[in-house]
Design a binder for these strands. Structure first.
Length: 564
RNA sequence: GGGCUCGUGGCUUAGCUUGGAUAUAGCGCCGGGCUUCUAACCCGGAUGUCGAGGGUUCGAAUCCCUCCGGGCCCGCCA
C-alpha cells in the first residue's frame, strides 16, 4: 500500500515538475515526521535555476494535480519542502487489503531462485552464541526474501575436508564418547580433549595427517568414520536450530566437489589464467588488480586442494541452479570472501552477495570451540528460558505449569532471536549474561504481547457476539487509529527495503514500531465497549493489527502467541 | 606494519549506501496512570561537542582527508 502511495507521489511530482518547466533525476522523496512523504527536491534545483528553494517549491506546488480517489490527500509547500499527505482512500483500502490478503499481506512479487547459505559451522561441537548470530541473520533474511517473492533455498555447507574434522575422527578413535550428553556437546568434549593431547604429545600429529589423506583419496572405512562423526555432531546442531525455528533445505558436503572432480576442473581452469603462477610447486593467483596484495594459493605443492579451491567449485555449482547467491559470513571471512569473489570475477563466473556480520566475543576475549572457550546456544536458551519462566510465573500466577513452560519457551526463543536481529550485522558485540537474560522492554516479548492482546480482544468480541462482517473503515478517525493504519500499510515497504538491502534488522524495527502503534491504540481507543457505529470497524482494525503483527513476527521467525 | 570495519546521552542502539526541517528508540534515572478489551502496557521529564580535528557544500551524524580508540584479518589452516 505504501509502495503504491509512493509511486503516486512520484508520478504526481514528476508531472508537476514538468509542468513547472523543471526537471530532476532524483525526486528526493523521504518519509518524514512532518508528512507521510516529503520531497526536498527544491534544494537540488535551486542552484540550477537560480531561484531560492522556497520559490522553486512554490512553483512546483502550484502545478501539483491530485486525481480523485488518489492515495494522496493533499500536497503542501512548507518552506523548501513539498509535503504529501495520505488520503482516506489510502487508509480504507489498507484495511480492506489486510483483511483480504491476511497471512500474505506484505508479500511482494519479485521472482527468481535464491540460494542462501548460512550458519555452516564446522561440525566439531555445538553452535555457540557467535554461530547463532549467523543463523538468525540468515534465517531471517531467508524469510524476508520469501515474502519478497523469491524462491529461497537455504543451504548449510559442511566443511568436512578440514583438519578439525580429522581431529574429531581421531578423537573418537582415542577418547570416550559420552553418550549421555547431547551429541554435539559430546563431540566437542572429544574434540577439545583431542586438541589438547595433540598439543601436548606432538607424536600423534602424523596420525591425523594420515586420516586426512585417507579421506581425500576416498578410503571407504575412513569415509564411514567421517560420516559417523559429522552426522553425530549435525544431529545436535539441527536440534538446536529446530528449537530456534531455523531449518536448512539442503546440507552440502564440501567433499562432494572433490569426489565429482569439480575441484580438479576448477584448479585446471584457474591454472590457465594469466594471473596464476607456480611457486615452490604450489599454484597461486595474483589478485593485485582486484586490490588484494596477498596471492591466493589454490593448489598445494603436494597437489591437494585447499578450502578456497573447494569453495570456488561450490560457488560455481551453486550458480548453475539459482539467480542469486547470498552468503552469510563472519567477519573473519572478509578477506577470504573477497579473494573468492575476485577469482570468480576473473573466471567470468557469478559472484555471491556476501553479508558479513561482526564477532560476538566474551568479556574475556574471543570464543574458540577448540579450546573449549565458548557459550553454547543451548546454554543461552536454557538460561533465558529460566528467566522467562520466572517472569510468566510472576505475571500470570493463576496459570498452570504447562502454560508457563510453553510461554517461557516461545518468549525465550523470541527474545534471543530478536536481540540478535535488532542490531545491525556490522556491529561487534560483547556477550553479557546479565543483559542476555534481561527482558528488555520493546523487545520480542513486547511485540508478542501486543499480538496476544489483539487476540484477546477478538476472542472477547466473539464471546459477546460482536462481528466485523459489516464495517466502514472511514469511521476510524482517531489519531491512534490513523497512525496504526499507516503503520500497517508500511509493512510491504519494510519487506521491500530489507530484501533489497539485505538488512534483517529493519523488520525488527518495523515490528517494534507496529506493536508500539497498536499499544497506543489499545490504551486510548476502546473496542468492545465502543458505541455500535465504531465497534465493528475497530474490531476490524484489531484483526488487521493481529494479522500484520503475526506476519512481522513470522518474518522474524518468532511465535505469535494467542495468550501469554 | 598493512588492509577492512566500528565509534551516536550512564549503558545498548536507529539513521550513514542515496547529505536536507527539532538526531531514533529502549534500558537505567525522576514523576504519573490498573473498579475500564491481559500493566510483559501507557503518559510526562532530565540526559547528546553524533570519537577528535580539518575539508567539500546553501546545508554534514551522513561525503573526503588526518589522527585517536575498539574489533577482525594478513598460513601451501578452515
Amino acid at each position: 500500500m505504501f509502495l503504491k502511495f509512493k509511486d503516486e507521489v512520484s508520478s504526481v511530482l514528476t508531472k508537476a515538475l514538468t509542468d513547472a518547466g523543471l526537471e530532476a533525476d532524483d525526486l528526493a522523496l523521504d518519509e518524514s515526521p512532518h508528512a507521510d512523504i516529503s520531497s526536498s527536491v527544491a534544494f537540488r534545483l535551486a542552484p540550477k535555476f537560480k531561484k531560492s528553494p522556497k520559490q522553486i517549491c512554490e512553483a512546483i506546488h502550484k502545478h501539483v494535480k491530485i486525481l480523485p480517489d488518489s492515495y494522496i490527500d493533499r500536497a503542501e509547500a512548507t518552506g523548501p519542502y513539498i509535503n504529501f499527505f495520505a488520503s482516506r482512500t489510502y487508509l480504507n483500502e489498507t484495511v480492506l487489503r489486510v483483511l483480504l490478503d491476511r497471512e500474505n499481506f506484505g508479500n511482494l512479487n519479485n521472482s527468481g531462485k535464491v540460494i542462501l547459505e548460512h550458519t555452516s559451522a564446522n561440525p566439531d561441537g555445538p553452535l555457540h552464541i557467535g554461530h547463532i548470530r549467523n543463523s538468525v541473520i540468515g534465517d531471517t533474511l531467508a524469510r524476508i526474501l520469501k515474502r519478497a517473492g523469491y524462491d529461497v533455498e537455504t543451504q548449510y555447507y559442511i566443511n568436512d575436508m578440514g583438519r578439525q574434522i580429522a581431529v574429531v575422527v581421531w578423537g573418537l578413535m582415542n577418547f570416550k564418547f559420552d553418550a549421555t550428553k547431547k551429541k554435539d556437546h559430546a563431540i566437542a568434549d572429544v574434540y577439545i580433549a583431542a586438541n589438547k593431547t595433540l598439543v601436548d604429545e606432538k607424536e600423534h600429529s602424523p596420525e591425523v595427517d594420515a586420516i586426512m589423506k585417507q579421506y581425500e583419496i576416498g578410503d571407504s572405512d575412513t569415509k564411514r568414520k567421517f560420516k559417523n562423526a559429522i552426522d553425530t555432531a549435525m544431529e545436535g546442531i539441527e536440534q538446536t536450530q529446530d528449537r530456534m525455528n531455523i531449518h536448512h533445505d539442503k546440507f552440502v558436503w564440501e567433499s562432494q566437489f572433490v569426489r565429482t572432480g569439480d575441484v580438479k576442473k576448477m584448479m585446471d581452469r584457474v591454472k590457465k589464467l594469466e594471473n596464476t603462477m607456480l611457486k615452490d610447486g604450489a599454484f597461486m593467483v595474483d589478485l593485485k588488480e582486484a586490490g588484494i596484495e596477498k596471492p591466493l594459493v589454490i593448489q598445494r605443492s603436494d597437489g591437494t586442494s585447499l578450502y578456497t579451491t573447494r569453495d570456488l567449485a561450490y560457488h560455481e555449482w551453486k550458480a548453475t541452479q539459482c539467480d542469486r547467491m547470498i552468503d552469510i559470513l563472519g567477519a573473519d571471512h572478509k578477506l577470504i570472501s573477497s579473494q573468492l569473489k575476485a577469482v570468480l570475477r576473473i573466471l567470468g563466473l557469478r559472484e555471491p552477495e556476501v553479508v558479513i556480520f561482526e564477532f560476538v566475543s566474551l568479556p574475556e576475549g574471543s570464543m574458540s570451540t577448540r579450546r573449549g572457550v565458548f557459550i553454547s546456544a543451548d546454554e543461552l536458551l536454557d538460561e533465558v528460558k529460566k528467566a522467562a519462566y520466572s517472569e510468566v510465573s510472576k505475571k500470570r500466577p493463576e496459570t498452570d505449569e504447562e502454560f508457563r513452560q510453553k510461554v517461557a519457551e516461545f518468549v525465550s526463543i523470541g527474545a534471543v532471536r530478536y536481540d540478535i536481529v535488532r542490531v545491525s550485522p556490522e556491529k561487534a558485540t560483547t556477550f553479557d549474561w546479565a543483559e542476555a537474560v534481561d527482558f528488555e522492554k520493546q523487545g520480542s516479548p513486547f511485540i508478542q504481547y501486543a499480538h496476544a492482546r489483539a487476540c484477546s480482544i477478538i476472542k472477547n468480541a466473539k464471546d459477546e457476539g460482536i462481528t466485523f462482517e459489516e464495517f466502514d473503515a472511514g469511521v476510524l478517525l482517531e489519531d491512534q487509529e490513523t497512525a496504526l493504519i499507516k503503520k500497517l500499510a508500511g509493512f510491504e515497504n519494510a519487506i521491500d527495503t530489507a530484501a533489497r538491502e539485505l538488512k534483517p534488522n529493519l523488520i525488527a524495527i518495523y515490528a517494534r514500531e507496529l506493536a508500539d502503534a497498536f499499544n497506543q491504540f489499545y490504551r486510548y481507543v476502546p473496542v468492545i465497549s465502543a458505541e455500535p457505529e465504531f465497534r465493528a470497524s475497530r474490531l476490524a482494525l484489531v484483526e488487521c493489527s493481529r494479522i500484520v503483527l503475526a506476519n512481522a513476527l513470522d518474518t522474524l521467525g518468532i511465535v505469535a502467541p494467542e495468550s501469554m
